[in-house]
Simulated scan of single mutants.
Amino acid sequence: MAFEDDAFERMHKIMTDGRSAMMENMNRVHRGEPAVMRELAVKGERTPSQLADATGNSPGRISAILSALEKKGWATRTIDPENRRHVIVRITPEGERLVKLHKQAMEDRMRWVFGQMGERRTEQFLNLLTRFITYMSLCGPDDPVPDETAIAKAFERAGIPYDPAADRVNVVAQAARTAAAGQHPGGKPGDTPADDDPTNTACAFA
């Protein structure tokens, strides 16, 4: 197997195993027809509400997307014979063919990128990406900064050694020093956490 093929497989596993909130949010950025078609191709028949939940779309937006897919012959909507209040959405053979073509095109492009980076830089990238995803897996939007024990366990689960960077920033200590000086991180002297966006949690500074 060529190194770029191996790199693609490794990166796919890294991204899948990461389970980070960041990657889940990135996957929700593309909420249009491609996202709906991928969901149907992977999960099989779905209801509109299930598609809305999976792709982060509103019910009205999903209805518009499904109408467009039906007109193109890429999906169908039928009444559930067991519950006539429910609509069943299925991808058509033509829709499945297009999803496979798009998936193959994306894989080919990523292999091309690895080829351009070269084997050494690709290896460095994958190692760093593994570490990045491992750190991000500990950073939920409302989670405090994880301690050394939690970080070490996360790296152990990822199957990689935990060797903290020599020049890393101790965010907890930094925040404590800032609070002692009467200044909230990112604010002006005298500001308090309540003055800032409530989503601006400690882990956001990690």
Rank of each mutant, 00 (worst) to 15 (best):
G118K: 07
M106F: 13
G118S: 08
V113D: 12
R97D: 07
Q104H: 14
K103E: 15
F125D: 03
D108W: 04
R131H: 08
E107P: 04
M117R: 06
A105E: 07
G95T: 01
L101V: 07
Q104T: 14
A105M: 05
D108C: 04
E107R: 02
L101G: 00
R109L: 08
D108Y: 03
K103G: 10
F114I: 11
K100C: 03
M117C: 07
L128T: 00
T122G: 06
T122I: 04
G118C: 06
F125G: 00
N127V: 01
H102I: 06
A105P: 00
V113A: 14
V113S: 13
A105K: 07
Q104V: 13
R120D: 13
F114A: 05
E107M: 01
E107T: 03
L128W: 15
R120Y: 11
V99C: 03
R97P: 05
D108G: 09
E107A: 02
Q116S: 08
E96R: 12
D108M: 08
V99R: 02
M117V: 07
A105W: 04
Q116G: 01
V113G: 11
Q124N: 13
F114Q: 02
Q116I: 04
R131W: 00
T122F: 02
N127T: 04
E107I: 03
R121A: 07
L129R: 10
F114S: 04
K103L: 15
N127Y: 05
R121P: 06
R111P: 03
V113W: 11
L98G: 03
Q104S: 14
N127L: 05
R131M: 00
R120C: 09
D108N: 13
L129I: 00
L129Y: 10
E96Q: 14
M106R: 14
V113K: 11
E119H: 08
D108L: 09
T130P: 01
Q116L: 10
M106S: 12
H102G: 03
T122H: 01
Q124V: 14
V99E: 01
A105F: 07
R121V: 06
W112T: 13
W112A: 15
R120P: 02
R109Y: 10
K100V: 02
T122E: 02
T122R: 01
F125C: 05
M117N: 04
R131Y: 01
W112Q: 12
L126M: 09
V99S: 05
M106L: 14
H102V: 04
Q116A: 11
L128Y: 15
E119T: 10
K100S: 06
R111V: 02
R111H: 03
G95P: 04
M106C: 12
